[in-house]
Nucleic acid binder design. Structure first.
Lengths: 195, 195, 195, 195
DNA sequence: CATGAATGAGCATTCATTCAT
DNA sequence: GATGAATGAATGCTCATTCAT
């Protein structure tokens, strides 16, 4: 791929992200994306097979970006509260920054198996991370042995996800740190971790 | 409204529910609904102002039905585990029965403020019910005084909702009673209620 | 036709006139007419074959009414100025009172040969009246022998008609008496009648 | 705009003119226009926002064409009869050539303020031209000082317009030169100009 | 490769008229 | 005869995708 091709592709990806954010998945028109990228409609199809293909790529791009944000470089705090709070705060911050795009993602996921797959993978990944942390804390005796770690990781993730959805997409905007603190408290209670 | 009119309206509501279930909110076409009801397109507009108006009515209808199912006639069990389990089981059962329609609801809620409002009201209602139950258990000393009941009710509701979404809409179908049991366990853990 | 039938017909005619006035020929819907008459849509077709048939009848009714107004009972003034002024004043007054309906008439006449025929007859009639008056004045030597009476009657009628159209339908409303006075002056000039 | 775009736009304008002529404003369907232009429906909307926008443009085009025809290049005859006759003849000729389209214009003007505005401007323009000619002749003593030039210009214009309407749109076709001669005679009489 | 015009199936909605009750 | 529901053709407009230049 030439230098120019890469640039055009990049422009379309950026434009797509903006348009999906602004208008949602169904509301976004290929013509809007091309216009936003300063290109002709036809050129869009040089780089992407369809609107849906673009969406998939934007989704991956955003995923990667968020992945980076949620996986800070330094050493993770070993203290459960600090660790959970950090993760939740990062999650809510990233969620809020991309709130428009997540709306589009939810929209498309209901229809589009591809988007669903991407989301499922992401969920699996974070659930795995959570489960491993829980396992460590269980090994250290911080969490009771009777807790089904897999299920707890899934359900707590679902709770966090849905709260983000309700607060940032549906409801009145909430400040991310307040949100993170409250959710973290609940995680701790649920896990029986000392406050 | 004549007998015949009531029948036709009912047929359209039923047809609409089915079509929304099958094709989602965007995918549903007025012509599909009319055909499913065995009527001409024009007749649709005798009873509903628009596709969206039909959706609103179907939504309310389904809401009412689910409301009835979730509010069983007999006396509620006072034992927290029994009570929570009953509620969750009813919720998952009702959710699964209408899974296709809930997908359409989620779809439309992302775009349509009306659907959003209906959902928000429903959530407020169930959250209130939950909070009152928690308050009773707190009064009886079953739940610690330090728990923020409002927030707990909201977050546990969000968790349940999202789990239903992930299991029944997104993921591999799960048996409602298994789902209810696992979720109930988690509620109990979170609330610090004796298993 | 029974007493009741006559009443229903009358109600529909009145309603039709109002609706055509308010919404124009194309804008009028049969349902509007029925509603305005306080009847069911189906009943409309008991009394009229079509929307167009109703229009035709309303047109004739209005024609007759205007005909009555433009043919005052008493003796006509023999003085040309007085006579012309009276006619023009009556014409503009009647025109203005029915301005909404005339708009509908113009609308339908462009499409509907029936309306065209009614209008053509009306024009023929008034032209005849005018021509006879002119002939009388020519006999009395008030108008030059060289004037083509047929053509003058037609053209002056056209002028009056179009002025009414431009003033009352298109343009800023004009007071009928001012309009009549100015138009009358022009008739007199054209006919070479002493001011 | 590329060469091809210009061609397509032109084809649609031509097609639109023809369809409006044949079917009138309400009768014209976008699909007819596209078919007449040998294009797909969608292409219509590449060039025009709506049926009404097309009409506006066709109207302006025809206006310009007629304007050109009615403003002959050479020096205007100073002799009133010759001048008036020339103008009327050109007017009737142009009117008759576009008779179908004028019908559509009258139709739309009754509903569409835009068309009304265009017509009002045209009328203002021609009235101004007429008034200036009359003023010159008044200065030269050919027309009496007591004539209200503004009103005479308006009313004579109205007469000519309506006669064209009645002859060419409504009634039996009349030969333009005969029409022009008769109308010219009447103008001269009205203005008191020597035959 | 870029361009942007061409395509045409798709869709919500309207309304005169018919017809079963 | 009255009612008002049923009908379905009609229509303007959209937009993802194709393709000639």
């Amino acid at each position: 791929m030439t230098r120019q091709a890469r640039r055009a592709r990049g422009a379309l990806l950026r434009a797509g992200r903006k348009v999906f954010e602004d208008k949602g998945y169904y509301g976004a028109r290929v013509a809007d994306v091309a216009a936003e990228a300063g290109m002709a409609v036809g050129s869009f199809y040089t780089y992407f097979d369809s609107k849906e293909a673009l969406f998939r790529e934007v989704l991956i791009e955003v995923e990667d970006e968020v992945y980076g944000e949620l996986s800070p470089a330094g050493p993770q705090p070993e203290d459960p509260r600090a660790r959970i709070h950090q993760t939740n705060l990062l999650y809510f911050t990233a969620f809020q920054r991309n709130v428009g795009f997540w709306r589009a993602v939810e929209e498309s996921a209901l229809t589009n198996p591809d988007a669903r797959r991407v989301l499922a993978e992401r969920r699996r990944y974070y659930r795995g991370r959570t489960r491993r942390a829980l396992a460590r804390w269980q090994d250290r005796g911080l969490i009771g042995d009777d807790l089904d770690l897999d299920f707890a990781a899934a359900a707590l993730g679902a709770m966090t996800e849905r709260c983000a959805y309700l607060w940032f997409i549906f409801g009145d905007p909430v400040a991310p740190d307040e949100a993170a603190t409250k959710i973290t408290d609940l995680w701790l209670t649920t896990l029986g971790l000392p406050g």
